[in-house]
């Protein structure tokens, strides 16, 4: 697959779906997906949220917890810490691995061993977590160098845990979702009349125009309604939790999508072969 950041994604087949990237920031990417069906666009959205694998803390062994917070509460907080997940592709899912309960192939070990000696309360941040793998670290927002607050300790309180991070997807638990939100929109002028804008007097006055409205020409008042028209341009904004760069989320999502299609293709091909029908080779390579 082949992404050109200037002109967008070009598939081998001309006239296929196209992606035009509008804006990339460290946490967001805005692009327009066009020349494809609504179902494909929505599939991409769903895959980005639920099926791009990331790494998150999944199992926490408490050796010592004398904080005021309960074990399960701290474990839950640890789970929600975004962890830089470039390595996720190299890890096994838990169900793919034969080890018990975990091994290096499927997990990354984090440890947290803090105790408060000072009179003032001590704050424990995600940066206190020590990873067993240098490439897998908690994500730290540049605006907040300490990372995510996990707990606060008073003098004499201790927290010593071993946290096992695993690969997973947002489908299983929200902590593995790589994006905080996906803005998705098509047809900003409601030309297709998929929706009806409820209004008291004038829908145009009461309804603010979407920011994406400039992308498409506004319909003329006398324009006839094209009931055959289908949505074509899909405006996406993907915001990342920090686990993966936003662009990676998109590319990996496309990757996941294609693998899924390839799997369908492979299985159907197998059936076709068994029935003696000619097998069509895929036009894309993975």
């Amino acid at each position: 697959m082949n992404i050109d950041h200037h002109s967008g994604l070009s598939f081998t087949e001309a006239g296929g779906p196209q992606i035009a990237i509008k804006e990339v920031t460290p946490t967001t990417v805005t692009f327009v997906l066009s020349n494809t069906d609504l179902s494909v666009a929505n599939a991409l959205r769903r895959v980005m949220i639920a099926e791009v694998p990331t790494i998150a803390i999944d199992l926490v062994d408490f050796e010592l917890n004398t904080t005021v917070l309960a074990d399960e509460f701290i474990a839950h907080r640890l789970g929600l810490i975004p962890i830089i997940s470039h390595q996720a592709v190299h890890l096994n899912y838990r169900h793919e691995c034969t080890c018990s309960p975990y091994c290096e192939e499927c997990s990354v070990l984090f440890s947290l061993d803090v105790s408060c000696q000072s009179e003032n309360a001590m704050s424990v941040y995600s940066t206190h977590l020590v990873s067993s793998s240098p490439a897998v670290q908690p994500y730290v927002d540049p605006a907040n160098e300490k990372g995510v607050l996990i707990a606060k300790l008073r003098k004499g309180q201790q927290l010593h845990v071993k946290a096992i991070a695993r690969k997973g997807t947002g489908k299983e638990h929200a902590k593995w979702a790589p994006c905080t939100g996906v803005a998705f929109e098509y047809d900003p002028h409601n030309k297709l009349r998929h929706t009806t804008y409820w209004h008291e007097e004038d829908a145009r006055k009461e309804w603010p125009l979407s920011a994406k409205a400039v992308e498409e020409p506004a319909p003329r008042d006398d324009e006839p309604f094209d009931y055959k028209a289908k949505p074509e341009r899909f405006y996406f904004t993907v915001e990342s939790t920090g686990a993966l760069p936003p662009t990676t989320i998109v590319t990996q999502a496309l990757d996941v999508l294609m693998r899924k299609l390839a799997e369908v293709h492979r299985v159907l091909g197998g059936i076709a072969e068994a029935q003696g029908e000619p097998v069509v080779q895929p036009t894309y390579n993975l």
Partner: peptide, 10 residues
């Protein structure tokens, strides 16, 4: 969320 289609009503 299931189809990605815009709802008929707001």
């Amino acid at each position: 969320g299931i189809t990605g289609g815009e709802f008929k009503a707001d």
